[in-house]
Design a protein around this nucleic acid. Structure first.
Lengths: 217, 217
DNA sequence: GTCATCATGTAAGCCGTTACATGATTGC
DNA sequence: GCAATCATGTAACGGCTTACATGATGAC
């Protein structure tokens, strides 16, 4: 979740953590995530190779390690930075300003996160916030999948409404009705997104019917 | 949060844990909470005196402790049950079916939880689900307070909209608009709740203008 | 030179989850 | 008697928050 927000925002362009947080809050319209989760997440993503330090003002006193030449330059440099960071942390020394950028792996991780159906419920709004980085067909697929979920949710609730004897009190039934209307609103929203998507490619677009072959020719 | 759901549901009448879970899910329209949080929460609430074991089929082999007579009967019995439970747990022995009920302290804790302004954002829907247990004036206060929050939220967002140069992409602006509409929907919902509340007491109610003085007479 | 703001990070804790373990009850 | 369901609980972990600690930078 936080990974999606970070990668999606870095995809726009490189930023340092503090700035990243501001940007996420102001663009996605989410309340600012805490530094206590942001910085560890950045470290984690860096360790996973999804993000790299593009620029750092970490100051001297760091051991300058001569290239041994045998390791790939990048991996070597990364390890050096890691060790340096650890040293600084232990000694309580200065931490420099670090600017992060997204890597190719990060880019493909972003794609995965956007496409993963398992997180739709929690993160759908966040996915929409960054869905411009999806290909049009994947984007439509995302919208359609969500739409199907909501339709299903609208269809079911008769089952557990009047379970037995007890009628809902006015507040509960009002709450139920409001939940229903939220779903209806989201359905209308999705329909609008889907329609806009189709008209963006245009009716004239070559992709209106079977642009890709199905498995079976 | 889970405490509110538990107390609010027990307030209706006594239940055992398994049943409680089903009831919460089906009434509040929330996905079922896990046993891994339900049972510990019940223990915690029992230890806090908000809930008590009303009936238990925990079977024999438990040390029958004769009343020493000095402690209040209830506290004594409670401790005995606690010890018994611990014994059973350690030995991996049978656990009986336990029926829980709400105590007077639990009732006042429920009131507190319903009234606490700090949790409005997270738990407002849940509060509405159990607001029938509030007095009418507290209930209206709950609604009005929430309403004011939402109005404030509608008023602000111009500030961080066009921060600098960058215009929002179509997906982001669509997302913003949808957020706005959710708030509008909730405002309409609250207005309806408030109106219904007033008409429930009737226009003849004595509390229509200045029932309490302001700080400054 | 000192204060607000920018900037990075760690530690502890909260609140929930999934996975696991165990036993009781009921229907066939 | 055996399976499905009812029923209670523990352990480990996940993802986020708050509180804390530290330092850099720029305005005045």
């Amino acid at each position: 979740m936080i990974d999606l927000a970070i990668l999606g925002t870095l995809r726009e362009h490189d930023r340092h953590g503090y700035d990243l947080r501001k940007r996420i809050a102001e663009r996605v319209g989410i309340r600012a995530i805490s530094f206590g989760s942001l910085y560890p997440a950045l470290s984690r993503l860096e360790a996973a190779g999804a993000v790299r330090t593009v620029e750092s003002t970490a100051r001297a006193a760091l051991p300058v390690i001569p290239m041994t030449g045998s390791l790939s330059g990048e991996a070597n440099a990364f390890l050096a930075r890691q060790r340096a960071a650890a040293t600084r942390a232990v000694a309580g020394l200065a931490r420099g300003k670090r600017v992060f950028g997204i890597t190719n792996e990060g880019e493909s991780l972003l794609q995965q996160l956007l496409v993963d159906p398992a997180t739709d419920d929690r993160d759908f709004a966040l996915k929409v916030a960054f869905c411009r980085y999806l290909s049009p067909d994947r984007r439509v697929a995302l919208f359609e999948r969500r739409r199907a979920q909501l339709v299903a949710r609208l269809a079911e609730p008769v089952s557990h409404r009047g379970v037995e004897d007890d009628p809902l009190d006015p507040y509960l039934s009002s709450l139920r009705e409001r939940d229903r209307q939220l779903v209806v609103l989201d359905l209308a929203w999705l329909d609008q997104l889907i329609t806009a998507e189709h008209s963006r490619v245009g009716v004239s677009g070559s992709a209106s019917h079977g642009p890709e072959q199905e498995d079976n020719p």
